[in-house]
Amino acid sequence: MQISYIAVIILFCLGIYTIISNKNIIKMVMGFTILESSLILLLILISYTPGGTAPILDRQYEIVVDPIPQALALTTIVIGGSVTAVMLAVTIKLYKRYRTLNVDKLRKLRG
């Protein structure tokens, strides 16, 4: 159980490191995806109760996991998906204009 939280921390730091250190636009977008998955994992872990089942109202099961984080996780996935989509769309346009994926080449805006 505790180890999974450590996994979340590792994933989160990894995501941030990817974003900061990489100069490739696609890899930076990947970093954001990693960041997002770590948060989704965190949400799932929060709701988890040992032996619990899916939060569907049924008399059969006594223990269910907390339903709210699951809903939040779904929303987060949707938002993360749309963020990634917008980012990739901008990336495509950028590539068409600059013919490169190197962030350091995007330096028209200064001062």
Partner: peptide, 26 residues
């Protein structure tokens, strides 16, 4: 060119901020 570049930088920063807000919310 400039608009797209600005949009990309904006996206990166704003998403980074959003994820920290989400982390704090969770």
């Amino acid at each position: 060119n400039k608009g797209l570049e600005g949009a990309y930088k904006y996206l990166v920063m704003s998403t980074l901020g959003s994820f920290f807000i989400l982390l704090a919310t969770i």
